[in-house]
Design a protein around this nucleic acid. Structure first.
Lengths: 360, 360
DNA sequence: GCCGCGGCGGCAATGGGTTGCCATGTATTG
DNA sequence: CAATACATGGCAACCCATTGCCGCCGCGGC
């Protein structure tokens, strides 16, 4: 058998390297962690010996004593929501650039799960990025007392935050719809515990006021395709020619639900979503949506967290605001001149249940 | 200021609890980790003191000496691929059930990144699940020598594996297409480093042989929507009436690219994908695809890994095979009786570049 | 009455790198 | 040439939970 009598658990330690290189363990340690504190020739020799012996610094051991794990937690609301993919990338990039490891936690849209997971992980990480947390402000503040925390997509006093410019995004969407002749907009609400949901609605109220467009809200619904489909039913009870949905998934679900009821998008109703997920570009019609710099969100939040971990105070004043923009596709169109036309067939026209909705 | 003179880094340790409860630190330790080794009254008292003091066991300190971190790494090829969302969920569920924490690593379809990330993380985890690794067999074996490893979506000798029944899935797809009258199938290949890509192609060869259906391959392309769009161009050079795509994203991109060239799906060509991602159900036409039990894949692989970590040998014989099924939607249809009809407009009909393709 | 055993709890070592402090040796300065 | 500064590297404490081993005590059996 070609087994090279492998030493089963014989990790190479700094002590091995030290004795092999003829220096003390502290010198080996410093050769890696504080190269300036050691003669460059010695350091080089140590590194070579370490290399030869296959020494790999044990991050766990470093942890004891320094209480620095070089890990951060990134908590997201729902891993199946494609929005988070780019955020995660941005965060991971920023983290690995600084030699930090990211541990990703999927809260599955549940307050309870989120807390539990954070409590389990908290003591093993140096800091936490909370992306779209569903927890209460006070719960978040509690965690923030124990570890550096940066909150994404939410503004909380006394905690560092990174948000996108929701008011501006909504404003752009409303302007766009207004230019197309719409004067009533329905907001399809997402989770009540979602901070963006609240601010989007408030921003819509404000924009509607200024631009003299009437607005109302239906919901809340789950921020998923299924949620959007359910919203279609409720919308049919009191239709408007324009809809702003909490996010793209709901918008897509809505378009679907409406299609099954014979409502045409954008012929009968214009729909705008939020987030610009990939799917927004592949559905029919292409979804007009408010795009956010997801990657930048993740990396900005993470970089901020890292500076806090390194000892910086963490500016808790105004949140950092990232810009957004409106991506116009084909789910919005000029208001249909004969608004009453399609109304009758919408209501109570229950289609055959979609077989694919029950996959698995 | 409302700062309760918070003790900055004052973690409560077993020593604090010990002196407060009037016992030795070892007793405190045992009260938690080996309750049977200590008098139940004492244990209870210790627990109460610990509770009062807010003691929380420090998982990192436990790590030193035992070398058990209670963490596992889950490496996925591409976090923006929705396939992995369910796999991650399954894995996390299985892990937390056994009180393990999962650290997720996104390899971003890069062999190099994958290796680097694993090397960084390896020593801090008790085991690794490799979901759709892009590394070479030998690289994987190397890691498997140092830590328990379970490989998902790939079969490697001497390493425990969990795979889905690709041959059967392909077979079902081919049967389905055959029943619709198709006698030529193009396989749109994904990454060469992807094991499922290889086996799907080989299975297609086999099924084609048995069922007397001609098959050929184009590609490889990137396993993304963009990749599928590029494939559309190549497919146009030598069209067939049926296509099997490496995965759903490519199938969706393909449908899109064909649409832009005036090719109708399923009128002119039937398309089958793999994975049954959510988007497969929302695109137009709905995508016929081979569905895999993603959640089960994640949890099966993880559970297997955990038993290995607990000391079980890890059966490296035949891989564990999970069943698949064909989900028929609307991207497949009977073969068009006049195959030459739509052919001419396909070739060299460059549409205006899609502005949305360059978002961000 | 002596021995043995089991239950319980303490002592001390362990693991692996980090770091404050000190000791040496060399370079710079007055 | 003496005095001070600096560069280097070693010593040993430290972090904190775990665990092998031993000692103490009380009880039961012979």
């Amino acid at each position: 058998m070609p087994d090279h009598t492998r030493p089963p658990d014989k990790r190479v330690t700094i002590y091995d390297v030290a004795s092999e290189a003829g220096v003390s363990p502290s010198t080996v340690s410093r050769a890696f962690s504080r190269p300036s504190r050691v003669n460059s020739e010695t350091a080089e020799r140590v590194r070579q010996v370490a290399e030869r012996l296959g020494y790999r610094t044990n991050p766990l051991a470093r942890t004891v004593g320094t209480a620095r794990t070089h890990m951060i937690a990134l908590v997201i609301a729902d891993i199946s929501n494609p929005v988070y993919a780019e955020i995660v990338r941005g965060a991971q990039e920023a983290a690995t650039d600084s030699e930090y490891t990211t541990v990703l936690i999927d809260a599955q849209e549940s307050d309870r799960r989120e807390r539990a997971a954070i409590e389990r992980t908290m003591s093993t990480v140096d800091g936490i990025v909370l992306a779209s947390s569903r927890m209460s402000d006070s719960a978040i503040r509690m965690f923030a007392k124990q570890r550096p925390v940066v909150v994404l997509n939410r503004a909380i006093a006394d905690v560092p935050c990174v948000v996108t410019d929701n008011p501006r995004g909504v404003r752009r969407a409303v302007e766009h719809l207004g230019e197309l002749g719409h004067d009533h907009i329905t907001y399809v609400a997402g989770p009540e515990a979602s901070w963006p949901n609240g601010i989007r609605w408030r921003s819509l109220l404000e924009a509607g006021m200024e631009l003299e467009i009437k607005v109302r809200q239906i919901g809340p619904f789950s921020p998923t395709i299924a949620g959007g489909e359910r919203a279609a039913e409720e919308w049919c009870a009191r239709p408007t020619t324009a809809v702003l949905a909490f996010n793209d998934q709901m918008a897509i679900g809505l378009i679907r639900g409406l299609g099954q009821r014979g409502v045409d998008v954008p012929g009968d109703v214009s729909i705008v979503g939020f987030d610009n997920i990939v799917a927004a570009d592949i559905v029919t019609p292409g979804l007009t949506t408010v795009a956010a710099p997801l990657y930048a969100e993740g990396s900005a939040a993470t970089r901020h967290l890292l500076t806090m971990i390194e000892g910086a105070p963490g500016h808790t004043g105004r949140p950092m605001v990232l810009p957004v923009r409106l991506v116009v596709r084909h789910s919005t169109a000029p208001r249909n001149p004969s608004p009453g036309r399609a109304r009758s067939p919408w209501v109570r026209q229950r289609p055959a249940p979609n077989p694919a909705a029950h996959l698995w």
